[in-house]
């Protein structure tokens, strides 16, 4: 990031990208459809399960694959758990950016570790899960897993209350967040912001509602919105979203039916979708994650593109930072919540 200052005030800011450009798209165009699945884990490495789902969703749309009921529920459960752990980690990181390195992160990671335990029990890996398949999930839950998740979900609001009590009335935190870098809803749409930063600016746009992909239309949940679009709104919206995720999780865990979790008709290895093009997106914890795939009928995608929410959410970073103090830049960047694996891919 090249920052030009006048005293302590930012007058220009140019982000420099590419330090983690790992050629995900080029690699994916040279390998089979299933082969890209583990690579999607490494895009936004804090929430691999939503990346998996977005890619599976795109391929399912491209080839017209149906997903069994139980797999849909399992996907929702996993995506919402991912959202909670991403937002927990966000709270830790943004506090770290503000200088409270340590305490908040310790609390946040305590909660995150519990969720990672569930992922590990289910998928075999803490972070790089590689769990979704075209037409379902890799395997069913181990015995008692859902019961444990149910117990855990009951405790999440306590954690959020604790976080809120710890942080929200803190005078220093308020001084660092309230009124910093406000962003209007109109400008946020123009800048292509998505996910929590967009909704913090007061725009009612959540892809879970708009597209109702998967089975999200069956759940009752609210879309939290901010009012001023400042750092405080962007910060608080994560806590509110995590609360809504808890609501979705409760419903999904109650309603999840028995049945298969993988469409048996789909040949996963050597998978060949019909020729055509697709763009599919979903509401990842950081924003709109989209996959654009052009298939020419062979076993490799002709064009494979990831629409990274983290990169596009940075479009307005310069605008937000101009006029702010240099010390606020880190907080503004932190409040957008980016992950570099996704910015550069």
């Amino acid at each position: 990031m090249n920052v030009t200052l006048e005293g302590e005030t930012v007058v220009a800011l140019k982000p420099v990208f590419g330090y983690l450009h790992r050629n995900h798209e080029k690699l994916a165009e040279g390998m089979s459809y299933l082969g890209s699945m583990p690579y999607t884990d490494r895009l936004d490495y804090i929430c691999p399960l939503t990346n998996n789902w977005a890619y599976a969703l795109a391929v399912e749309k491209l080839a017209g694959i149906e997903v069994p009921e139980r797999a849909e529920y399992l996907r929702v459960i996993l995506a919402e758990l991912t959202r909670i752990q991403n937002h927990a980690a966000f709270l830790g990181f943004v506090l770290g950016d503000m200088g409270a390195w340590g305490t908040a992160l310790m609390y946040a990671f305590r909660e995150r570790e519990r969720i990672l335990d569930f992922f590990e029990e289910l998928t075999g890996a803490r972070m790089m899960v590689n769990f979704m398949r075209f037409g379902g999930c890799r395997w069913d839950t181990p015995a008692g897993w859902l019961e444990e998740v149910r117990k855990f979900v009951k405790g999440v609001p306590n954690f959020l209350d604790e976080m809120e009590k710890l942080l929200v009335e803190n005078e220093i935190l308020l001084a660092r967040l309230v009124g910093v870098a406000p962003l209007s809803g109109k400008r946020a749409i123009e800048g292509g912001l998505s996910g929590p930063p967009l909704r913090a600016s007061g725009v009612d746009y959540d892809i879970r509602k708009v597209d109702a992909y998967g089975i999200y239309s069956r759940f009752r949940f609210r879309i939290p919105r901010g009012e001023y679009g400042d750092c405080y709104d962007r910060f608080m919206i994560r806590i509110h979203e995590a609360r809504e995720s808890v609501e979705i999780l409760k419903q999904a865990l109650d309603e999840i039916p028995e049945g298969p979790v993988l469409n048996p008709k789909i040949k996963q290895r050597g998978f060949r979708p019909p020729p055509g093009e697709v763009y599919a997106r979903l509401e990842a914890p950081k924003g709109e994650l989209g996959f654009h795939i052009i298939s020419d009928g062979t076993d490799r995608p002709y064009r494979y593109r990831v629409r990274p929410p983290s990169l596009i959410n940075l479009t307005l970073l310069e605008e937000m930072c101009i006029g702010a103090k240099i010390a606020d830049v880190m907080v503004i960047l932190g409040s957008i919540d980016i992950v570099l694996g996704e910015v550069d891919r």
């Binding site: 983690l20 804090i46 310790m106 305590r110 995150r112 990672l116 803490r126 790089m128």
Partner: peptide, 16 residues
């Protein structure tokens, strides 16, 4: 930290 491993490095430094 550079990439995914950095998150595990932070996890190593964190509470558990």
């Amino acid at each position: 930290g550079l990439a995914c491993c950095a998150i595990e490095m932070i996890a190593t430094a964190a509470s558990r």
